[in-house]
Nucleic acid binder design. Structure first.
Lengths: 342, 342
DNA sequence: AAGAATTGCGTGAACGATAACGCATAAGTA
DNA sequence: TACTTATGCGTTATCGTTCACGCAATTCTT
């Protein structure tokens, strides 16, 4: 691999000149610059990242705008773990992160976090945003300086200038859930518990689920709602379903609160197929107990890890990154669970 | 993070002395060494990897002993992809790899590859071994110099001094396959196609499969064999099964040759549940077509990637690494396939 | 006791990039 | 004309290691 020094020799200039050309720092004659650039192309120069981050005085500051970890049945701990892991690895590359957590059910809370970010915006080199509160987030990103890079995690805002989106394909994930339910119940009657308030992901999962069964009219599906803010709401909803639908064969829980549903199913002493989401601690316990049949995992830890890494690569290494990364939808059951933990 | 220079100042010695202490290069008074070591402990010194690999003249050479990529229905391309990806990333850290591929059905071929390795052994810093031919591999590792680090990929040799094993838990993987088959066929009669010649993994998968159904006597299971050396053998075996067992509900193919089985199932025009292994190209096609219902993937690409990375971390960074990494057993179906492809 | 070998320690040149600085020469301004 | 300012380019210190080298002081030879 060619070095700046070698290129300098080939172009009959000094190392400093090559450096100036590469970084467009000016103070180079047009002719010389062209000559250098040609050679740079020719030898397919790639800067040595090691040398760069060793020499560069620059520290990168990334802001992380995500919901409080406890929210959505402790779901938000998972991406955070991945973010923290990436941050640790990136320490040697002079990367520092700061969390600006918010309450995902409170626009004011998001606004306050956003305000914090904007206050220090000149010393922030990039943002990782989970735009769960889409309206508030949409407003926020218009207030960002144009140069500022940001990546969306988990959710997405169309027509934004985000560098990349990392998350699941929710529709397909609902479809997958339906396929599993179809196998478990032999296309029996099933209930969907939709988390409210409105969330793009959840809606999409439910749409995916319903669309799978559209072609199977024998498999009846009923949709119910439960509030993801109130931890008991899912349990109550499930209990209601079980009480009023003695012929129900399965329940699909559209978010990480599946353990609440499991409690109700367990209490009913009936054999009900249960498909849910995400490897939060309590879900894992109910999966092990055999009350939850399948959990669909969206590799939440990996999502966080990859998101921060991509932000780093885009901002620090100026790499072009893929506009979207759809993470695998892992099907987790009692039999393969242990290999997904950590 | 403390640097050598800082430690040197704290210990009232020069940078070079600290370096000698840390690397046990001698030429340091016992007293001085102790003093330096205490401070090194105290400040929890971690060498800066960037600076290290930038300055170090040392290039690491790792040998890769794996079967030819085409073997086992092109299976061995997958780990190789991961190894290559890791090698590319590790280039800046001065890592070079060399393949010593062998024919997994020919002990002589392995011996020849091993001979090649031994010939250049003094310039090799570590080995990645897929000890598929366990006897030959066992003999080989006794011939290695004691200092030489090696990691097992895919398969394992007990009582060896390997740094780590990376692969699947085959028994559990067979169990998982059985669970899926049980769902697909409602505990109907199923056939297992066991790949021969003898292979520890395959045996274990089959044992896992059978053990799952032991508790369900209604679900009859028959075991057949097919040679993984002869590409048509699986197709023929499947055709035989389908012909002689009109009441069969599902086939479990114990290795990556599942696409051969799919051909036979497709030709029979019967609706047969089919569970197989690994995301090789042809398997993916039959999964998309709906002939294969589930593929269990052992993250073969990731296996390769992680294996080389661990070898690097163990040898170059002298990190302690986990003695075993059981990769997740991914359940891949038509609905979530696309997110597993690369 | 004179010379050789060993021990203890410091020095300084890499590695490849960043970025400040300095110094000519050229162009613009009063 | 004498000055500032801009342009074009080279030089050099720095980041944190590695590692060869060199030079005393000490110890071992014979």
């Amino acid at each position: 691999m060619a070095t700046l020094k070698e290129i300098a020799e080939m172009a009959n200039v000094s190392l400093g000149t090559v450096d100036r050309v590469i970084h467009n720092r000016g103070r180079v004659a047009a002719e010389t610059a062209a000559r250098v650039r040609r050679i740079v192309e020719q030898v397919n120069y790639r800067p040595n990242i090691l040398a760069r981050s060793l020499s560069s005085a620059k520290t990168f500051h990334f802001g992380i705008l995500v919901p409080f970890p406890e929210q959505d049945g402790n779901y938000w701990y998972l991406p955070r773990q991945g973010i923290d892991r990436a941050a640790e690895e990136l320490q040697v590359y002079k990367v520092e992160i700061e969390y600006f957590p918010y309450d995902k059910y409170d626009e004011n809370s998001f606004a306050a976090a956003a305000q914090q970010v904007l206050k220090n915006i000149h010393q922030i080199d990039g943002l990782l945003i989970a735009p769960v509160l889409s309206k508030a987030a949409e407003k926020f990103i218009t207030q960002l300086p144009k140069r500022l890079a940001y990546i969306f995690l988990d959710s997405y805002i169309p027509r934004s200038h985000c560098l990349s989106y990392i998350g699941e394909d929710s529709f397909q994930s609902g479809l997958l859930a339906a396929k599993l339910m179809s196998l478990l119940t032999h296309d029996g009657k099933s209930a969907v518990i939709k988390a409210i308030p409105f969330n793009y992901h959840i809606e999409d999962r439910v749409r995916g689920y319903l669309s799978y069964f559209e072609s199977k009219p024998s498999a009846k599906v009923f949709v119910f709602e439960a509030s993801s803010q109130d931890s008991c709401s899912f349990q109550n909803a499930a209990a209601q379903i079980l009480e009023h639908h003695p012929d129900i064969k399965g329940i699909f829980c559209s978010n990480a609160c599946s353990f609440q549903v499991a409690k109700a199913v367990y209490a009913s002493r009936r054999r009900i197929a249960l498909v849910g989401y995400d490897l939060v601690k309590e879900n894992i316990e109910w999966l092990e107990k055999g009350v939850i049949d399948f959990l669909i995992s969206q590799r939440s830890e990996i999502q966080g890890y990859n998101a921060l890494y991509r932000l780093y690569r885009a901002v620090a290494l100026k790499e072009k990154i893929e506009p979207a990364l759809y993470v695998p939808l892992d099907i987790v059951t009692k039999e393969n669970l242990r290999y997904y933990q950590n």
